[in-house]
């Protein structure tokens, strides 16, 4: 998949995360803010990188503003933001593919 336009998913409520994705010419620029940075910053980074790899994203700007979301929430929000950015969020969600 490819990030084609700017898209967002998630909220800034406690236990959620807000993800913003933007197209970029090359590489992935990942930025992370988190209310639980000191204890979970590395894990959030790892989860985000893995999810982007699963989705086949190789370039784009990805911003994570985390408010203590669990890993499952984080993954779902990243998926939703990416799908919205390439227009597959209304239909054609790859159920059973990269979304399990």
């Amino acid at each position: 998949m490819e990030i084609q336009k700017t898209a967002m998913a998630g909220t800034l409520e406690s236990s959620d995360a807000q993800i913003t994705v933007e197209p970029a010419d090359s590489g992935i620029q990942l930025s992370i803010e988190s209310s639980v940075m000191n204890q979970y910053g590395r894990q959030i980074k790892k989860t985000a990188e893995e999810k982007l790899r699963e989705l086949g994203i190789t370039k784009g700007k990805v911003k994570v503003v985390d408010k203590g979301a669990l890993d499952c929430t984080l993954k779902a929000r990243i998926e939703a933001a990416v799908f919205r950015s390439c227009g597959v969020s209304q239909k054609n969600i790859p159920w059973g593919g990269v979304v399990r």
Partner: peptide, 9 residues
């Protein structure tokens, strides 16, 4: 549920 937290530094 939440994952093992890293030790604070």
């Amino acid at each position: 549920l939440v994952g093992t937290p890293d030790d604070l530094e």
